[in-house]
Amino acid sequence: MRIVVQEHAFDPGAEVNAFAAGRSDMGAIVTFSGVVRDDPSNPLQEMMIEHYPGMTEKALEQIATEAQARWSLSDVLVIHRFGRLRPGEQIMMVATAARHRKDAFEAAEYLMDYLKSRAPFWKKEQAASGAGWVAARDEDEDALTRW
């Protein structure tokens, strides 16, 4: 398991190659990347991501450990950035590896669902219309009930 919380940009392709390097037990690798999305009707200048150092790493490790307990996984990678990001930049990625794809797909979805509403990150958008904190969505909280 590798959990990384960092300010600087990362290369998702290089990260997934490193994640799989030298491993022959990974029959399936699923990756997800979250990207800063622009809104043409209200252009985004930047997104500021705040987090809770210490709790962030602990929460991500707990979520990844739970995923490893629920599915048969070869490995898990979570990278999440904080600080100032511009539209089009990578915010985060998860990669899950398993012998078979079902475990890898389900574990990646589980990680994303929990990461959305249980990892202590907050996003503030600076857009043409002004600045504001991104509100948590009820759908994201509801998504946890399926697990």
Binding site: G34, Y52, G54, M55, K58, A59, H80, I91, M92, M112, L115, K116, S117, R118, A119, P120, F121, W122, K123, W133, V134, A135, A136, E141
Partner: peptide, 28 residues
């Protein structure tokens, strides 16, 4: 969060070093 674990407002503060207040999280 109490000592970096998410909890409820009725949680005890006995022996606690750190309490954090924040809005619902928006990771991912």
């Amino acid at each position: 969060a109490v000592d970096q674990d998410l909890t409820d407002f009725d949680a005890s503060l006995e022996g606690v070093r750190e309490v954090a207040f924040f809005p619902p999280m928006t990771g991912g």
